[in-house]
Amino acid sequence: MAESIVMDVRDFSFTYPGVEKPSLKKINLPIKENKITAMIGPSGCGKSTLLRAMNRIHDLYPGNTYEGEINLYKANGEKENILKIKKENDFIRLRQEVGMIFQKPTPFPMSIFDNVAYGLRLAGIKNKTELQDRVETALKGAAIWNETKDRLNESALGMSGGQQRRLCIARAVALKPRVLLFDEPTSALDPISTGAIEELIAEIKDEVSVVIVTHNMQQASRLSDYTAFMYLGELIEYDDTEKIFLNPGEKLTEDYITGRFG
């Protein structure tokens, strides 16, 4: 079965303002629909930079230079080069289609319900029953419905770290994005909460395509269908996860995944 591509990074280079050399150099990376793509590589190689380009969150700060293309394929097969986006409305639409989960949990200073409903309300959903339904579905999807159903009106700031992370995933999933970008979603988390979040990610891939940055090799190999290895701003190798971990094509990749790396 041919797998369709939902996003496609082409010859993409990225330079931060005030920096001479590009932080990403001619990256080519397909993101397959309803699959999990892992990005691995040593610290500072540009994983977050690439991820943050895919929903243009970089553009909150002025002066970045983009080259190449990042195409987003719509459900109807049309493609859009998101690097061409200039208007605020189009940014908003893009970010609703390409969601992002940050390294640290970021509950908003409002109730649990409102956290999940937030994006929906921004998207213009006002109907109370619909909001309630979608919040419930999202919380169930993120496996925290049982813990939260009796305290939906309490502040989200009172939840545990692991719960907050799942809340943030629920919040992003509620918007039904086409792609979800995870930047180290389980860093500094205990094994049980990590397991819960991995399970969650594995489940939501039926609904969305996932890109996940991780420093945890086991996580990448357990969870992902495809893996991209980056090094010093370049994409060294991209392939089936199995192939990358069992039989990498590049010496650098092999050195990295076996831990023989300076």
């Binding site: 929903n55 969150i57 909150l60 605020e88 908003i92 639409r93 970010r95 609703q96 969601g99 992002m100 940050f102 390294q103 640290k104 970021t106 908003f108 937030y118 994006g119 921004l122 998207a123 943030c168 919040r171 992003a172 918007l175």
Partner: peptide, 15 residues
């Protein structure tokens, strides 16, 4: 206000 908090709101499509 932590940057990531603002970024998360933007990432949900906030103006």
């Amino acid at each position: 206000t932590p940057l990531v908090l603002k970024e998360s709101a933007y990432a949900m499509g906030a103006t």
